[in-house]
């Protein structure tokens, strides 16, 4: 219970700073919307094409945009040396990781709340379904888990803007595949059972990376 309070305190602090600065959500949502708009011009979006390419465009846009936001979220902690203030506290390092991951989860989730309705309009697809909520939650958990770890790894590197996507995107490829395939099944109106294997892959990815990343994170923080 005490640990959950600590995680929530760190996540809530990030949310408060984000509400005041609007650095991350604006960057993530703006970038993702830009990708969607560009593709609507680039592709002839008849009903068949929209169902075929829409899921891929959506998740590629969110993944690339997510990198921008993840970079920013950790850079703020390092610029003010506040990461060290967190490290001075009598809490285990994995709680810092989980708190930061919670913050990143909230940013990406808020960005998706903006991006997904725009996607639905631009691609003329029905996405307001429980399946979409499940896919979105699972994918955001995975993005946050991996992204928080790699953002912490790359934040002290001079070329961090380049380093983070190089680390992040290859690792989240299985999750990206699961998200695209599940969304594809959904837009074609197939049942939960058709997308079950992809959702299971996403769940397995999330569990594995939350546990492993929390473990690795404490070693990354030490210089």
């Amino acid at each position: 219970m005490g640990s959950l309070r600590i995680i929530w305190a760190i996540g809530r602090k990030d949310l408060l700073l984000e509400i005041r600065n609007k650095d991350v959500v604006v960057a993530v949502a703006g970038f993702a919307l830009l990708v969607l708009v560009i593709f609507t011009f680039a592709i002839d979006l008849n009903q068949g094409n929209a169902k075929l390419v829409g899921p891929g465009v959506l998740w590629a846009g969110i993944a690339f945009a997510g990198v921008t936001g993840l970079n920013r979220a950790f850079a703020l902690e390092v610029e003010g040396d506040t990461l060290e203030a967190l490290m001075l506290a009598p809490i285990s390092r994995d709680l810092i990781y989980l708190g930061k991951a919670l913050g990143n989860f909230l940013f990406i989730a808020v960005a998706q709340i903006i991006v997904i309705p725009v996607f639905a309009v631009l691609f003329n697809l029905v996405v307001f379904r429980w399946e979409m909520l499940a896919i979105s939650l699972l994918t955001t958990i995975g993005f946050s888990a991996v992204g928080t770890l790699f953002a912490a790894m790359s934040v002290r590197v001079r070329a961090r803007e380049v380093m983070l996507p190089l680390l992040f995107l290859p690792v989240v490829t299985p999750l990206l595949m699961a998200a695209v395939e599940s969304t594809s099944h959904m837009v074609y109106g197939r049942s939960w059972s058709d997308m079950a294997q992809w959702l299971q892959l996403a769940v397995a990815f999330d569990v594995a990376f939350v546990v492993v990343s929390a473990f690795i994170f404490q070693h990354i923080l030490e210089d």
């Binding site: 005490g2 309070r5 600590i6 305190a9 760190i10 602090k13 408060l16 700073l17 005041r20 600065n21 003010g80 040396d81 506040t82 060290e84 203030a85 967190l86 001075l88 506290a89 009598p90 809490i91």
Partner: peptide, 21 residues
């Protein structure tokens, strides 16, 4: 000082008080 510039003094201290339980 290792403080959050966009939070007030009270908010900073309350946040760290939570971390120290």
């Amino acid at each position: 000082p290792m403080l959050y510039g966009d939070m007030s003094i009270r908010e900073n201290l309350m946040f760290f008080a939570e971390l120290y339980r």
